[in-house]
Amino acid sequence: MTAEIKPIHQNGMVDVQNVRKIYRRDSQEITVLNGIDAQVAEGGFFALMGPSGSGKTTLLNLIAGIDRPTSGKVFVAGTDVSQLSEGRLAGWRSVNIGFIFQFYNLIPVLTATENVQLPLLLTRLSKKERRERALMALNIVGLTDRADHYPRQLSGGQEQRVAIARAIVTDPKVLVADEPTGDLDSKSAHEILDLFDALNNDLKKTIVMVTHDPRAAARAKICRHLDKGVMIDSEERELKDGVR
């Protein structure tokens, strides 16, 4: 046993190694993830599909560092997330991860810019810098004109774009999205996916996205399927060209 934990096998930006996640409820054990291996290269766009209850959100949460595996390793951006304490994990998330939820999860009492500024409250930026950065992020998602609107004054697609602005405002390396288009009509979904493409291609964000929607998955460079806690694709299928 060495005190130092080296990411010896780390491959790419996200490297999930033989991860198991077991929930214990009373005396019952539920194995939600049963030996998962997955890699996402830097600048990759990874889509995760699978039936409801297959463990997609669970895996995503492990990658985002809001949960820890029962066994196995999760390397993200060079850090073994599974080894960090809860307190360190919070700080790590604020710098490295942008999280996008299905239901946007904006804070209703805050305006768009204020929502986007939230993660910046944890940095040392001045008030002015925070606002500037937030406006920059809103500019990227094309919502500068809605900066001072409250979430209830925005459409679903707009809310999700604000949420994306919030996810990218700290300039994290990895974006993690759980069914980001699940609650949107197809036009808005299309716009959001275009945005993901742009973030991936232009800003070189590594994206891990859970989705039920084949059209969303088709945007990704890699798509894998999860079922009953195991990856069912034997090999990674490159979707870059052709299949779309």
Partner: peptide, 15 residues
Amino acid sequence: RKEIAILKTLGFGSG
């Protein structure tokens, strides 16, 4: 609850 979850996800420490 939701907001607390969001804040924590964004990296706000429990404390």
